[in-house]
Design a protein around this nucleic acid. Structure first.
Length: 421
RNA sequence: GGAGACUUCGCCUAGUCUGGUCUAUGGCGCCGCACUGCUAAUGCGGUUGGGGUUUAUCGCCCCUCCCGGGUUCGAAUCCCGGAGUCUCCGCCA
């Protein structure tokens, strides 16, 4: 939810943001009207309620004719108050609906436009020269690391088994991510993968992304698509001490329906229904959020350096931001078999947008509660296995293990095929 | 799955049977002031959060006794539904 005070004081900032995203400016005027409507309704209710309370105080002492008159008036009031209260409820619901229609105000400097209007900030590393590169699935099968056939047999398409060095590789990656997080003072966390509707809604995943989310009807729970959800809801309805940002690194499985992605990335484990991820999450004061965002990005790049894969960093265009994000940077790893970069991390600055809905606050210098800012960023996911296998492959189908990962793979520096190439 | 108890303004707690000076009691903690060489002790005052009004302050007003309904002129208090916590029983790993 955006800040209504900003909306009242500076609606043009919100309009400009809508324009940059390619979204409706009239939604801004609708929200302004809804805000005014609510305040008018509140005032009507409160003045009636105040009179009701005043008269109510006279009641115990009143007698005879006086009491009769009083009762007549208060009965009238009782109905009016009830009606006015209902009107406030309606006005609040209308306001909330209008508020939910407007995504976060885009940070200044973010490129305007849609999916293809991103700006490449930098390219890092050297792309390997590989003649006729094998793709990650072929390599994964050679190594006995990835089994999508049996994944499909047991669970359907877009499911897979990681076996042998594949399982070790994922565990190693995620452990390395946790180790790095701990090194920088983040609190390592293992979080629920099932959450209540409030948590899902509060993080903004039941809006445009609703069809992406698995829902367990019988228990009214949702499977999370990222540990951002349980980490953001972790401090909901709390007032935090945010002298220093509160930082977490959450490990969880993630579940995505991938509705509407038929035919895209059907091969291998690039786009799957279930994967594992270590996600950073930070709560901080709004004025710290910009710097914190760059810090998260730096930590992501440090992880990419450790696995020694070439990547580029893009500044996502306004129209391609999630509804909660004010700015988003993605790191995209080089995938030799595809000859292009694919997203492996994503870090978003959600400013106060997400925390307002989840009611996460801190105390400012004056001791007054204020809405916190939230940020998130990826440290490692199952998908990382793709560029790792492909960039480090050798002609014989073996795969070199990046130095930093070797301790997590029993010290081995190369993964050897278990079947004939 | 079954039965019961509980949920009050940071924490603990009074109030709920018997609806109206509850504008919620007291203690602890915290903040300010006074007193005192310092500390401690003591005294006085303040201390839930949200919203409306206001340029802002001051002030005034409304909401908030787990949540949502209902009864009533009036609900912390009565009724219904729900959530959470705890205890016991059963079942399962």
């Amino acid at each position: 939810m955006i800040d209504l005070r900003l909306l009242r004081d500076d609606p043009d900032v919100v309009r400009a943001s809508q324009r940059a995203r390619g979204e409706s400016e009239s939604a801004v005027d609708e929200l302004i009207a809804a805000d005014e409507g609510r305040r008018a309704a509140v005032q009507r209710f409160e003045s009636l309620r105040a009179e009701q309370k005043q008269l109510g105080k006279l009641m115990p002492r009143a007698t005879g004719a006086e009491k009769e008159t009083l009762l007549g008036r208060t009965k009238e009031l009782s109905a009016d108050v009830k009606a006015a209260e209902a009107a406030v409820g309606d006005a609040e619901a209308a306001l909330r609906a209008a508020q939910l229609r407007i995504p976060n105000v885009v940070e200044e400097g973010a490129p305007a436009g849609g999916e293809d209007d991103y700006v490449v900030l930098r390219e890092v590393g050297t792309k390997p020269e590989i003649e006729a590169p094998r793709d990650h699935l072929e390599l994964g099968e050679l190594l006995g690391a990835i089994d999508v056939e049996r994944g499909a047999k047991v669970s359907g398409s877009r499911f897979y088994y990681l076996t042998g060095v594949g399982a070790l590789l994922q565990l190693g990656l995620l452990q390395m991510a946790i180790a790095q997080a701990v090194e920088y003072g983040l609190t390592p966390s293992i979080v629920p993968a099932l959450v209540k509707p409030e948590a899902m809604e509060g993080t903004g995943f039941l809006g445009a992304h609703a069809s992406e989310v698995y829902r367990l009807e019988a228990d009214d729970l949702y499977l999370v698509g990222t540990s951002e959800v349980p980490l953001a809801a972790y401090h909901s309805n709390e007032i935090l001490d945010l002298g220093e940002p509160a930082r977490y690194a959450g490990w969880s499985s993630c579940f995505r329906r991938e509705a509407g992605s038929y035919g895209r990335d059907v091969r291998g484990i690039i786009r799957v229904h279930q994967f594992d991820k270590v996600e950073m999450f930070s709560y901080c004061r709004p004025e710290q959020a910009h710097d914190e965002h760059l810090r998260l990005l730096a930590w992501e790049e440090e992880m990419l350096a450790k696995v020694e894969i070439p990547y580029r960093v893009i500044d996502t265009a306004a129209g391609d931001l999630g509804s909660s994000a004010a700015r988003k940077y993605d790191c995209e790893a080089w995938v030799p078999s595809q000859g292009r970069y694919r997203e492996v991390t994503s870090t978003s600055n959600c400013t106060t947008f997400q925390a307002r809905r989840l009611n996460v606050r801190y105390r400012d210098e004056a001791g007054r509660p204020q809405i916190a800012a939230t940020l998130n960023g990826t440290l490692a996911t199952t998908r990382w296995i793709v560029p790792i296998l492909e960039n480090h492959q050798r002609p014989d189908g073996s795969v070199a293990v990046p130095k930093a990962l070797q301790p997590y793979l029993g010290g081995r520096d190369v993964l050897e095929p278990v079947k004939r190439a």
